[in-house]
């Protein structure tokens, strides 16, 4: 039987030291067994490497930053849809999820499908609400506090011991060993990502991540735990290995069952020396290391696309344990004309 070809638009084509998941998602989609793909890249900046990977991405269009507003994004997507007849969009940045969730009904009416968490799920799992989230769903989370005002940092030592983590609302986290460092990180991170700043108890231990997919009805469609083996100074895994930890899988299933999570996700976990697991963060999208899940037998992006199209997807039941990913950066040679094309016309 001839496989259908889907036009799938993907964001997150960047690959700086904190790489976007887009290119990994695209690799996964090219390996899908249930469909062929024509990939449309959606970029925010002209130097996102995925734009120039013509063997993976057929055509790229620049899209406006979320700060430009939902209507501006919708107008741009309407233009792109007119040219490309998009079947599915996979947004891969935390910061763009809010406008895409808001636009989901309008895009669906245009024939564009997505499989995103609901606005309630998106807000509830936010770092700012993690304490309440842990209490509500019976999941251990480190104690955290939300700060809007630099003057309130002086009260922190009565509630937290040093070191403590200073986190931005979307990205960035630093370990502070003194009030002076807390202040410095507060200013640095809030200048980049805005307020609030989240202070989180530091849990000593080993870092793990789980990526997976929830069907929105409480079922686990996919789940793959990974131990970070090589961590950059930004805390990003540059190498990792799939593991078989039942506690982590149980926590993942509990998270999906209780929240009825819809879409891809990444859980950031810390295991202390007593083997207790803490949930540090829930990323409401697929992670940059998603290709490891494909490598161990769970093509999560493919399953996500099928769910977005309203098809029945059989949950994955197994994966290979002990498979590693080792990340590499690659210098592409690009003609200046291509850079000009995407910079000036917003299309390549």
């Amino acid at each position: 039987m001839k496989k259908r070809t889907l036009n799938i638009a993907v964001t997150g084509l960047n690959a700086i030291d904190s790489p976007g998941p887009g290119v990994s998602v695209i690799r996964a989609l090219h390996e899908a067994a249930s469909f062929n793909v024509n990939i449309i890249g959606l970029s925010y900046e002209s130097l996102e490497p995925g734009i120039y990977m013509h063997d993976l991405v057929a055509r790229t269009y620049s899209i406006p930053y979320p700060a430009a507003g939902i209507d501006t994004l919708l107008a741009r997507l309407e233009y792109i849809h007119e040219k490309e007849k998009i079947d599915v969009i996979i947004p891969n940045f935390d910061a763009e999820l809010y406008p895409f969730i808001k636009l989901e009904p309008k895009l669906k009416a245009m024939g564009i499908h997505m499989f995103l968490p609901t606005l309630h799920q998106f807000e509830e799992r936010h770092k700012v609400n993690l304490n309440d989230f842990g209490r509500k769903y019976g999941i251990s989370v480190p104690h955290s506090k939300v700060l809007y005002d630099l003057n309130t940092v002086h009260s922190l030592p009565s509630e937290f011991s040093f070191p403590m983590i200073v986190k931005g609302k979307f990205y960035d986290a630093s370990i502070a060993y003194s009030i002076e460092q807390v202040k410095s990180y507060f200013n640095k991170i809030s200048a980049k990502w805005g307020l609030p700043i989240i202070i989180q108890e530091f849990v000593h231990g080993t870092e793990f991540n789980v990526t997976g997919l929830g069907d929105g009805k409480g079922n686990t469609i996919a789940a793959v735990p990974m131990r970070k083996q090589y961590i950059t100074d930004k805390g990003k895994a540059w190498g990792g290995i799939s593991i078989a930890d039942e506690k982590m899988l149980d926590m993942t299933r509990k998270f999906l069952k209780n929240t009825k999570w819809r879409g891809g996700f990444e859980l950031e976990l810390m295991k202390n020396k007593d083997g207790e697991l803490y949930l540090l963060e829930i990323n409401p999208r697929l992670p940059a290391w998603i290709y490891l899940a494909v490598g161990v037998g769970q093509n999560i992006p493919e399953a996500l696309v099928n769910l977005a199209l309203g098809e029945k997807v059989k949950p994955f039941s197994t994966y290979s344990v002990g498979k590693m990913f080792v990340r590499y950066s690659w210098d592409m040679i690009v003609d200046r004309e291509e850079f000009e094309q995407i910079s000036i016309y917003g299309e390549l």
């Binding site: 990974m226 131990r227 083996q229 990792g240 930890d245 002990g322």
Partner: peptide, 19 residues
């Protein structure tokens, strides 16, 4: 169970990913 040992002497614990 599941702890793997290769002929070359690499021991892998699949629960926590340690080698």
């Amino acid at each position: 169970k599941n702890v793997a040992v290769s002929e070359a002497g690499l021991l892998f614990n699949p629960v926590n990913g340690e080698s």
